[in-house]
Computed example of a mutant assay.
Amino acid sequence: MGSIQERSGTLYFDFRYKGIRCREQSKLEDTTANRKRMQKILKRIESEITLDLFDYAKYFPKSKRVAKFKAIANKLEEVIEFESDGADFEEFALLWISEKEIEWRKSNYLTVKDVLLLHLIPAFGKKKLSEITKANILNFRSTLAKVTGRSNGKLSASRINHIMTPLRVIMNEAAERFEFNSPWKNIKALPVPRTDIQPFSFDEVSLFLKHVRDDFRCYFLVRFFTGLRTGEIDGLIWSNVDFENRIIKVHQSLVLNEIVPCKTDGSYRSVQMSEIVYQALLDYKAQQPKNQEIVFTTKKGGHLQNKYISRHIWYPTLKASGLSKRNPYQTRHTAATLWMAAGESPEWIAQQMGHSSTTMLFRVYSRYVPNLTRKDGSAFERILAEKFLQNSPESDHEE
């Protein structure tokens, strides 16, 4: 969904078209009347985009993007015909990913594009699609097992599977289009060893929060006790923090420094705020500028950078706390395991986490499941009150 934004006192349109973020400046001052006027235009633009009737040049004739979208349109209108026995892998792979670009998130598109350029095209580039055999594919996979990855280690089974997935889709799609037998038969994904999670205990969470920088205490407290993903909390806006009903509405995520809708329907959810989260956010909001839209920002008001937080906040705090080294995603695992250890209903926990079912809960967190009770957050609330609200830093200070 697009929006009307302000820059240097004037308003501009901010929307997405053909998977591309578009910002078009107007000459209108930032007034209520002008915002309403532009909002009506934006609604019309989005309706035309939905109906595939949008003409960029009609609304923004002087924009540099007009030529870009015209080129895209011309490219899509080209009829590219291959002979079933003459098409090579590189030619078809690049066509395939250009077709997929409009369907995918930018992050997914860039990930698959890297796989094509770094692995698949160098290996199969000029080979005719119909001449690629099962033996070629298996040989390629075996060479991946010898490739050096990060930290000079070998590629993991999981990483190899992620590289092989686009190859499978491309070969099956080509076989269907050009009517030849796909060589991808009975090629199973490599078994991936089960990764042990490293959630924090209540005492470890308390220890971490005592050592973390004051300006990040609320940020990590919310992460530990809501199970929000990194992109979800980094993209959280105040309008989605409902203090009246004590819920956090998860409707968007920060991906590659852009706010985008949630990836799946299941990710759209309302997460209940426990008392400690409610109070922390209430106090935090009181300290923020009134016109600040994003909940957690840099000192300059920009989006948080995950690499910076990991390198300068997360790992130094673990070290200062004497806690074992683990990645920041463990905050999400921590929320799930603490809820389960408190005896909350698996169905309620799955809903809080954004899972479509309880299957993952029992597969990943089964050893943390006690004799379950059918509750809705009250058991966890009680333990938080015992562990934190009665022994908070504020209480210690008063004593």
Rank of each mutant, 00 (worst) to 15 (best):
E24M: 01
H303C: 08
L207T: 13
G302I: 08
H119Y: 14
M164L: 14
L338R: 13
K127G: 00
S63N: 02
E173N: 06
L117M: 07
Q198R: 04
D114H: 06
F220A: 10
H397L: 15
A135D: 05
E81P: 01
S324D: 02
A335G: 02
V369M: 13
L138N: 02
L361N: 03
A350K: 05
T31F: 04
Q330N: 08
N186E: 05
V112A: 00
L11S: 10
K210A: 12
E398Y: 12
T10C: 12
D396I: 13
E381H: 03
D85R: 08
S8H: 04
T31W: 00
H355F: 04
H333C: 06
A320V: 05
I45A: 01
F200Q: 10
V260S: 01
I160K: 02
R311N: 07
L118E: 04
T337C: 09
A286I: 00
K58A: 13
A379G: 11
F54A: 00
I187D: 06
K128Y: 13
R367W: 05
L236D: 08
K185D: 01
I20S: 02
P191V: 10
D14P: 04
R223I: 04
T373W: 01
R223V: 07
K113S: 04
R332L: 00
K113L: 09
K263F: 11
V250Y: 05
I72L: 13
C262I: 14
V222R: 05
K68D: 04
Y308S: 02
I276M: 15
R374Y: 12
Y59E: 10
I383W: 03
I4C: 11
S392W: 13
P346K: 09
I294R: 10
N108A: 10
G149A: 09
K127Q: 04
I102Q: 00
I276Y: 13
E83N: 15
T50E: 14
K64N: 11
R332E: 07
K325M: 00
F362I: 14
K375Q: 12
A145Q: 12
E179F: 06
P122E: 05
A73R: 11
K134L: 03
R159E: 01
E176W: 10
V205S: 07
E179C: 10
Y219L: 14
A174V: 09
S26D: 08
N161T: 05
L190I: 13
